[in-house]
Design a protein around this nucleic acid. Structure first.
Lengths: 256, 256
DNA sequence: ATCGATTTGTCCGTATGTATT
DNA sequence: AAATACATACGGACAAATCGA
């Protein structure tokens, strides 16, 4: 129960209570917690105060919330996956080849005027339109990366119409536009996730993530995609290989 | 100004405004921000909403607050350095080309029997010897990365004798062994630093670092260097570029 | 397929406490 | 001592998402 006299903030006390319940097994992985209002009434505190506690525990990764459903105990991730990044790799193919089950989910799709940094990256004039696609990629049904993709509208007219049976951006490029895209550049950073990224990837806000900025072009050297991907730091490592000849993996294994 | 119609939460809009002001130099390191109440009145939103934005930016490390004093721009290295990783780039050259001052310091140099993962990476038999070189790389006298390098002793006899006027590993390879090294593979991860790494890089233990595993070979396809580099997460981003010669789809088709 | 109940998300208002200047 | 600024807590209101009857 919450002690209203001892000077410790109520929300901190509630955090400790919940942490203890999870640690002791009273609440198990994936289990739904009482709603925020219920917490409020059982502990005689305001719902905002409960929210403060639950939010903080979400940021720490102990819990996660789903709007309209409730709050749940988070479950901890699996093994480290090596994701090979090449000029032409596709997510589904790459994951399937690694023996895992890929999945994709479009979280958001809209058309907007390119923000400044996007326009710069894609070499667009100010005011030109881009499609914004936010895609969550899953491996074995677990969130693996969150990508925010910007596509120049003028080069990909009507792109939104092709999203109904979405599986791969590359497939749409090829089937509907005759474009065979190629990665031009990738930039890697280690940072903390932003709050919505942490929530979507179901990781604590204080866990590092790998952010990869990618720029893709068509075979005609037109820039067609600028993507910022946020990788689950604990779950993923990303590799890049160089080849001087046409052989890739052989270089390593054939060493004598 | 904040658009109250576009559906984007006010606090997110305010975050973007503040982020932009910091990025554009309108707000500088250590500078005090307007108080939460001032923000509220200038943007016509409630203090709680301002608080939500400021709290989130504090968690991201952009700002920090001091109770009773105010909110300030955190002391973060804004001009993070982009380090271009290619098959043949060298640290000193790369940094100098970016207009910064490179520096190197050998922290440790010894010969030892290859640990298992090193032997695996370098394709050595168990019990073979490697040189271990721990090198701190500086940019403008600031710690930038810490690398732990393993070199197979049998291919680089007497390597330790060439370290007295050390500036570049590549230079030693070329001058004393006639080897022109090339990067074969690089693997990226985002994690927390180990204690000694944090100390050496002068970063807090709870700040993410970018760990890059690199494998180098000679022109004869002999693996000559396995390196684990720990990059100052806040200070560095690493980019990789692809050229026409690298695509060919070879990597994808060769998967088995 | 629709509607209503539930649950979380956002926003505003108010009050009080605590730390710093 | 007073003013300022952040921290905590409670209240009301509405929106958005989910789920089940």
């Amino acid at each position: 129960m919450i002690d209203k006299e001892n000077g410790i903030p109520y929300y901190r006390q509630l955090m400790q209570i919940i942490e203890h319940q999870v640690a002791s097994g009273g609440l198990r992985e994936g289990q739904q917690l009482p709603s925020i209002l219920e917490f409020g009434s059982t502990y005689r505190i305001n719902r905002h105060t409960v929210r403060q506690a639950v939010d903080e525990l979400c940021r720490q990764g102990l819990l996660f919330k789903v709007r309209g459903r409730g709050t749940f105990v988070a479950n901890h991730p699996l093994n480290l996956l090596e994701y090979k990044l090449t000029a032409r790799n596709r997510f589904h193919q790459t994951i399937a080849q690694a023996g895992k089950m890929p999945g994709s989910k479009i979280l958001q799709a809209m058309e907007l005027i390119a923000p400044e940094e996007v326009a710069t990256a894609l070499n667009l004039a100010p005011g030109e339109k881009v499609y914004l696609l936010e895609i969550l990629r899953l491996v074995n049904d677990q969130p693996f990366l969150l990508s925010t993709n910007y596509l120049p509208a003028k080069h990909l007219p009507g792109f939104m119409n092709h999203l109904c049976h979405f599986s791969s951006l590359f497939a749409i490029y090829e089937q509907h536009y005759g474009i065979s895209p190629q990665r031009v550049k990738a930039t890697f950073r280690a940072t903390f996730p932003r709050q919505p990224e942490a929530v979507t990837l179901k990781i604590p806000a204080n866990m590092p993530v790998l952010k990869v900025e990618s720029l893709l072009k068509s075979q005609d050297d037109i820039l067609i995609q600028y993507t910022i991907s946020c990788y689950h730091g604990d779950l993923s490592k990303i590799s890049v290989e160089w080849q001087e000849s046409d052989d890739a993996g052989g270089v390593i294994r054939q060493e004598r």
